[in-house]
Design a binder for these strands. Sequence first.
DNA 1: TCGATGGTTCGAGTTGATTCGAACCGTACA
DNA 2: TGTACGGTTCGAATCAACTCGAACCATCGA
Lengths: 99, 99
Amino acid sequence: MAEELRLPAREALRIDEVLIALGHPVRLRVVRTLADGREMACRDILPDMTKSSASHHWKVLRESGVIHQRREGRCLRTTLRRDDLDARFPGLLDAVVNG
Amino acid sequence: MAEELRLPAREALRIDEVLIALGHPVRLRVVRTLADGREMACRDILPDMTKSSASHHWKVLRESGVIHQRREGRCLRTTLRRDDLDARFPGLLDAVVNG
DNA sequence: TCGATGGTTCGAGTTGATTCGAACCGTACA
DNA sequence: TGTACGGTTCGAATCAACTCGAACCATCGA
């Protein structure tokens, strides 16, 4: 049963929280990994990190609105919220990915 | 004698360092204060902070390439490096200022 | 039903960033 | 000269963030 996790609406995205989320090398790497629009399983994105540490970063990215996660079975499928981020902060993601 | 402080060239700007610089409320406030293009004295931007703490933030902002500082007498005049940031990361500053 | 799996939560330890005072440096001005 | 001023640097203290293991929960497959 595919269920959605709570996450901020597009209008509620805050640039200060997004910048904090992006201001860490691990999370920046996550964003770049997802930049092509793929939907990936958590363990495929951060395979070398302990579950608890990874979960901490998922939470920061999710609550700041950078990523979307959807439960499929016992696995979380993760995508970048590119549409929402581009709508609210045009150019930001491009800078992150291309820079 | 107006002398320039060392700072990274436009081509050397790194998005990861810029994001770290912007991912702190004090430094984000500095950027927003300078967003209109003004050149301001340090003590006018962060009047309530001790000199040593403020100097720490100047260093982070300067070395990441977010701000430019120019010595004029015994005072530092600070400006946002809008041209360089817009050239390398189009849309980033607008998101920071308008978001 | 049972064991394995993917993630979360909790608490504690560790690391890193921020903050501050004191000492210092160079400039301006009396 | 000498003194006041704007910033930097240093070291130490504080605080926030990151990390990890253990316990836990829900789901899937046997």
